[in-house]
Design a protein around this nucleic acid. Structure first.
Lengths: 220, 220
DNA sequence: TGCAACGTCGTGAAATTTTCCCGGCGCTCG
DNA sequence: CGAGCGCCGGGAAAATTTCACGACGTTGCA
């Protein structure tokens, strides 16, 4: 902490939303916003420059997303304190964020007090998870849903990614330099492992587990 | 307009984001925030109470979403001025919002000035569309992508909705009281009409056109 | 070292689904 | 009334999905 309180950096691609963070945080004595970034690359660059005590980071951003930004920043500074603040009320994203090195995960539906408390918790060295995500995590455990990143091999995961991104089995076979038949086999195997019947269910599961985001799909 | 300037109502399920709107708008003389709602139902109720000159509305909200809220409010007051302010940089959503009765559509990635200008435009009776959405609309025209709501008959659209929501062909056949064969036929016909090969592409298209949202899919 | 387990890639054949073509039915419109 | 269209499904060919199986390389462990 510097002379004037904890230094906070905000990362969110929506300027108006950053304005909201700022407004909430400045009511809290001992906090000051020293930098703002609107995407992952800028966040990484500005972190190295301004070395804030804490980063409040959104996940869905154009270009380098939040998860990748977390990984890069943590690689640069193992002690970096990052609090994820996102709309995704989704256990899969939370798990990914914590694994990437975040110290906290709070959803945007939370009241401002929850955000402030989480900021204080993370600054104090504690891990902060908002109650709704705790609940989601518990649910996904209870449902016994297989986590794609766990049950799938690297190759299978790669094929899954391509299935969701590319168009036809043939195209995927070509990018992977294997026979279309193999891709089809993997496709079937993946659905079996994840316990889904149709491709539509597959997409739903992928979305739920944060393997892809709406914007990934939305792009042409 | 009342004695103290235009009365604005904010609708967004994220409290911190509303704080951002408020912070941006209060810098603008002649505007004051008179009400806030966090979902569609509350928005409808509060609109009837406080009769604001303008509503700034998010689309993705729990329960009654933004589109439905727009329809209800416009049904209650044909002259209601509603400006959609959302993260969805998506021509499909914009078209739906305008058809539902919105007077403007601005994405959250826009700078605060764009929001303020749009607010002023709508208050002055003009329609405000942010430049990125103009661009999206132009692109979707150029790509010649068929709009699901246009080329599909009511029945086909219903089946599409169920395909994306339910699990198996059999279950859909049951809910519709037709033979599974018919559903399969429709399924095939729909893909043909929309010009997609696989179910995964179908989901992507539906997402892009705003037929379903990420949260729809995310629910178990 | 040897060998068991596993991931990867592929073949083949059966089972299933998708797709296309068809006819019947009811409705609307000129 | 006849043409056109949406809706419902049968039938059959075509394509895909699924399953069983084998080969090969790697890893890990006794």
């Amino acid at each position: 902490m510097s002379e004037a309180g904890w230094a906070i950096m905000l990362v969110d691609d929506h300027a108006v939303v950053r304005e909201g963070y700022r407004s909430v945080l400045q009511k809290q004595p001992g906090l000051r916003v020293v930098a703002e970034a609107s995407d992952g690359a800028e966040a990484y660059r500005l972190f190295k420059e301004s070395a804030p005590d804490l980063i409040i980071m959104d996940l869905s951003m154009p270009g380098i997303g939040g998860l990748e930004a977390i990984r890069r920043i943590r690689q640069w500074d193992k002690a970096a304190k990052i609090l994820v603040f996102t709309m995704h009320q989704n256990a899969g994203f939370a798990v990914q964020a914590i694994r990437a090195g975040a110290r906290g995960y709070v959803t945007k539906t939370s009241p401002p007090e929850t955000l402030v408390r989480a900021v204080m918790d993370v600054l104090a060295g504690r891990v902060a998870i908002s109650p709704d995500i705790d609940h989601e995590l518990a649910l996904s455990r209870l449902a016994g849903e297989s986590s794609a990143t766990d049950v799938l091999t690297a190759r299978e995961f790669e094929v899954l990614r391509l299935l969701l991104a590319e168009r036809s089995t043939e195209e995927i076979a070509e990018t992977l330099h294997v026979s279309p038949k193999t891709v089809a086999n993997l496709h079937s195997l993946i659905k079996g492992k994840l316990g889904v019947e149709s491709d539509i269910e597959l997409v739903r599961l992928a979305l739920r587990q944060g393997i892809l985001t709406e914007v990934d799909l939305g792009e042409a």
